[in-house]
Design a binder for these strands. Sequence first.
RNA 1: CGGGGUGUAGCGCAGCUUGGUAGCGCAUCUGAUUUGGGAUCAGAGGGUCGCGGGUUCAAAUCCUGCCGCCCCGACCA
Length: 481
Amino acid sequence: MAKKEMEFVKEITRMEDDFAQWYTDVILKTELVDYSPVKGFMVIRPYGYEIWENIQAFLDKRFKETGHKNMYFPLLIPESLLNREKEHVEGFAPEVAWVTHGGKEELAERLCVRPTSETIICSMYSKWLQSYRELPYLYNQWCSVVRWEKSTRPFLRTSEFLWQEGHTLHETYEEAQDETIQMLNIYRQMAEELLAIPMVSGRKSEKEKFAGAYATYTIEALMHDGKALQSGTSHNLGQHFTKAFEIQYLGRGGELEFPFHTSWGVSTRLIGGLIMVHGDNRGLVMPPRVAPTQVVIIPIAQNKPGVLDKAYELKAALVERGIRVELNDDTNYTPGWKFNEYEMKGVPLRIEIGPRDIQNNQAMAARRDTLEKAPMSLDGFADNVAGMLDTIHNAMFEKAKKHRDSMTFVVDDYEEFKNRMATTAGFAKGMWCGERECEDKIKADTAATIRCMPFEQEDLGSVCHFCGKPAKHMVYVAKAY
RNA sequence: CGGGGUGUAGCGCAGCUUGGUAGCGCAUCUGAUUUGGGAUCAGAGGGUCGCGGGUUCAAAUCCUGCCGCCCCGACCA
């Protein structure tokens, strides 16, 4: 058995040996994605897509609870529209894909495949908005966007990715700012309550903010290998776009006004994040609330009388309770094979039911996160399972938080900071002067970037830890995906 | 766009040095016996050897051009 276990582990590269290869092995072997015939474009397979559907369901409910409605805008944007806002076009121009022909005829004006939809949405908003009475505009769309990336990795950076983008208009700056922060908070809740990923949230520096934004806010997670992942952004766009697109309305005082604008988005990148935060050398570890399959039931010695009946009875009880459950009664595979298979796929809880268990009015419950196996009573079975899933969620969140905290350090000494970024990486906390020159030097020296100026500011001193000038903000610095 | 690697069955690889009718493991299919941590036996199917050109009686193998993909950087969610 020990030998077989070693053989199994060999199928997935160990994290410690090569984290990037581990990631690739896991996503391919668990059938989350596959590479497509077009470079940089991935196929999301059913097991991966179901994760995205669960993320969508969670967010869509929150969006609607906060007054937003969904809509859909076209894939293609005329070049002239993209060019309307200067910072924006400069930010995205290098990575847009162009449609130049319709059939055999060359188009009079090139059309870009949307890299994001601010421009086309604003052009329509300017047509629609007339009066302050219509504000706020609270809309969102679920779609995919295309950015022609030079180097790509499934989920983390692909040329096309699925996301949602909210686009709202408000009467005042304060309202727009409240909206921006509200949506960031929803993202943070989603990350913590659904994905069990602890986030640092805060504001981006001028260098890192969205092209055309007044201010960008972000949630940042730390991956198992010590690199950070920007996991969601919310932008206060001020009046940059509304002025460029001449969105005007008649205000309360009878004057024409420009509204204040926000946009916010998360993408399928989140799936990459949950893999790299929770996964281990056996494969995926799915947080229970987002897991496509939350519980798998494996009957043992299933041809013995009563076993399969009991297994189906347990499944029915879990379905009744609203738990996503799968029962694998395929006789071509041994229980051991199934155990390994579902562990690799990260199913949070495995229930084993065999003749001995039935005799004792129990089942064996094996947790994926801790790999612990213990008897579970069949009295109140569905409640026991539901409780266990919550326990697993909480344990996974705490474990991820502990890991992040263990890789977070204060910058005392610049040389040590450089050294640490080159080895174990992690989150570096420090005071920062706020100057672009200093930020550029950090990147040149370490390849790390300022991830954010967190809302929860800590007073770590009065001078910049990176250049010695007077400090303005406390920042998190990390290497990023 | 720079650096590195790789291309032979669905997947992982051997064969190439020294040219001679394409092989192994896993997976798949059929049947039987099995089932508390990746079962066993018997049988079966599956290939334009990345693409083009050349040398040769003969090319997976030698020469040549091209292409794809992966990883690491720079750029970005």
